[in-house]
Every structure is written in structure tokens, then in C-alpha cells.
Design a protein around this nucleic acid. Structure first.
Lengths: 181, 181
DNA sequence: CGTGTAAGCTTACAAGGTACGCAAACGCCG
DNA sequence: CGGCGTTTGCGTACCTTGTAAGCTTACACG
């Protein structure tokens, strides 16, 4: 029996194993032992399906961490966890870039993190700005990393990206620390 | 007479006027008064053509500004100019996200900016980290902005994105200022 | 048992990228 | 000036992919 969940799970499998180009309706149907057109009972079109994959992965990223006590620590932890999840699904990063995460879902998933700002007396509006800034930094950075040609995928490159990521993240978080009282 | 330059210029035109989905080989040929297959004399395939568009737009962005004296000012100016160019070609932003800019071209275009770090005695390696961090922040932020559904494209939204962008950029630059002695 | 509804299937079509080989135009040489 | 190789563009055709439309099967419920 087909279900939204089963379809999305299969989609992520294909994505991870074979990349974005391989994620066609027919290929996905094959994976599920079903005809391509059957998928349209659950999604109006391919784009909606990809959107579902995006929301699923973002949820995975955010659920994978528990926010620390202070907001700078929690914010840093969010950035690290988000990056870790994205790098675990390298072929999905381009999807995240082109299919924005559902805003309401994003806010709901991030309440834990946002509450750390609230506890420090920071306006919700400023908290959101900081969290979103880190979010787009992580996405942009990961895009750059997964976009490098495969011949550069050695240990030195890994170390370079790790260091670069940390520097930028630290700069941003400390910058916000000064900015937000 | 067809040339790489003419093709890329026409591609950007179509992109700006009709969006990324409209940029097909046939449509581009039409624009140039030429058959689709003729384009393959200048590009091995569509992806290479899109890569050309990306490099062209990045060059436009970087050429559009002269770096200020101190590196924090120059870095901020770069971020602002890069964002301005991306927002001037909203349909191209997804391209920039999926087709990384040629590294050597990027470095060459950014020598002016990097020299400001050098003048302050900052290691080339650290300078690159800072510049790239701002670059991916700008791209990520612009992706988020152009990805918002059109019904939210009012003045309030514009102000929101502007403020968010500035906050994140300032945080990052001041963060690097503290980090880089 | 009859029937209505949900789940999946079959077929078919329209785009779109691009391989392949031909044709025309141009430059260079004798 | 004539021949010819090379460059530039074209026509045709093929394959892949998303998806519209309508059919079929099977199960629930009276």
C-alpha cells in the first residue's frame, strides 16, 4: 500500500544512492513496485513531491539536536547539526536550495531554539533574524562544498571546508552576540 | 555570426524576462535567429552554457564595485554589491546555487578585495575564508528571498529581507573583525 | 449480491536535450 | 581565379521525462 511516507522514504533512498537526476517518477515507481502514475494519487506533481522531501530532510536535521542552554551555544549547535544532516544527504542540498522549507513547519521545528533567545530577553524578531542568518549560511556553505568537483574530495579538502565553516559560523554567532545586547 | 558572448547575453535576457524554465535550447536559438543545434558549436551541452551564464553574472557582480580602503568596509561592500546584482537577476539565483562559480575566475575577480586584507597583515588563507563566508551567506540569503512565494512580495517583505540581510552581514563582518586580530 | 469508491494501471502525448550527418560559406593556396 | 579543407549552421530523428485521461480491480458496506 502506497503512502506519502513510503514514497518520501523511497525518494530519499534514491536521492542518496543515485543523485537528483535519477529521481524520476518512473524510477521512483520502480523502487516502490508501482507504476509512475500511481504516485500522482499522493502528490499533484513532481515538484510537490520534491517539496515533501525537503520538509522531511529539514525536519530530520532539526530533530537531530537538542538546543543547549544559552542561545549562542544553541545557535551554534543548530548550525552544526544542520550542516551534518545536509552533508549526510549531499545530493539533496540542491533541493533545499531550490525548494524553500515550509515556513510554518520551520518555525514549529525551531521553537526550542527560539525559546533560548526568549529566555535571554531577546525580541522574537531579532531571534528569527539570527537563526535564519545561520540557516542560510549553512545552506550556502554546504552548497559550495557539495558543488566542488569530485576530484577535490580528499582529506585536505574536507579539512579546508570544516575550518572554513567553523570560522564563518563563529564569526556570525559572536557577531550576533555583540549585536543583541 | 554566433559567438559565446552573444549566446550568453541572449541567455541572460531570456532568463530575466521569462525565468529559468523558459531557457531551453530551442527558445534560445529562436532569440538568436538560429536553430537549437547551432548552439552546440559553442557549448558542449546545456549545462556548460548555464555555467557560462553563472560566470558572467558573477563577474558582473564583482565588477560592479570598487573595494573600500579597510577590509571590513570592503568586505561589507562586496556583500552588498553581490546581493544587488543577484536581486537584479532573480531567476538566475538558483543557477548560481547549482553551478558553482569557477574558482580561478572568482579568485581573479576578487584580488582587489583580497589585497585589502593583505594590507592589514591578514594571512591569505584567513582572508579567503572571510570572503567566501560572506559570499555563501549572500547566496543563501538571496535564495531564501527569491524563493518566497510571489504573494509575499510587498514592501513589508522587502524591508524585512533588507533588515535581515544587513543584520547577518554586520554580524559576520564584525565577527571576523574580532577573529582576525 | 450490488454498487460505489479508492488505488493503481495503461496508454498516449508534448517538451526538451542532443547525436548524426549534410550543406553552405569562407579562407587559403597554387 | 579555381579548388578544397575547415568552420558554422541546419534538419531530422531519437530517447527520456512529466503528466493528462480514462479504465480496472478490489474492497467496504448496505
Amino acid at each position: 500500500m502506497l503512502s506519502t511516507e513510503r514514497i518520501l522514504a523511497a525518494a530519499v533512498e534514491i536521492l542518496d544512492a543515485e543523485g537528483l537526476e535519477a529521481l524520476t517518477m518512473r524510477r521512483l515507481g520502480l523502487q516502490l513496485g508501482v507504476a509512475a502514475m500511481s504516485l500522482y494519487r499522493h502528490f499533484p506533481n513532481r515538484d510537490a513531491l520534491l517539496g515533501g522531501v525537503v520538509n522531511r530532510l529539514f525536519a530530520e536535521a532539526v530533530s537531530a539536536y537538542a538546543p543547549d542552554a544559552t542561545w549562542p551555544e544553541a545557535l551554534t549547535g543548530f548550525g552544526l547539526a544542520y550542516r551534518r544532516t545536509l552533508l549526510a544527504h549531499p545530493h539533496a542540498v540542491r533541493l533545499l536550495a531550490t525548494h524553500p522549507v515550509n515556513v510554518d513547519l520551520g518555525l514549529e521545528l525551531l521553537t526550542g531554539l527560539l525559546s533560548r533567545f526568549e529566555a535571554a530577553g531577546i525580541a522574537a524578531h531579532d531571534a528569527l533574524t539570527a537563526v535564519q542568518s545561520v540557516g542560510v549560511y549553512v545552506l550556502g556553505h554546504t552548497l559550495a562544498q557539495v558543488g566542488t568537483p569530485p576530484e577535490h574530495h580528499d582529506d585536505a579538502a574536507l579539512a579546508f571546508y570544516d575550518h572554513w565553516f567553523d570560522s564563518g559560523l563563529i564569526a556570525m554567532v559572536t557577531g550576533f552576540e555583540r549585536q543583541l545586547v
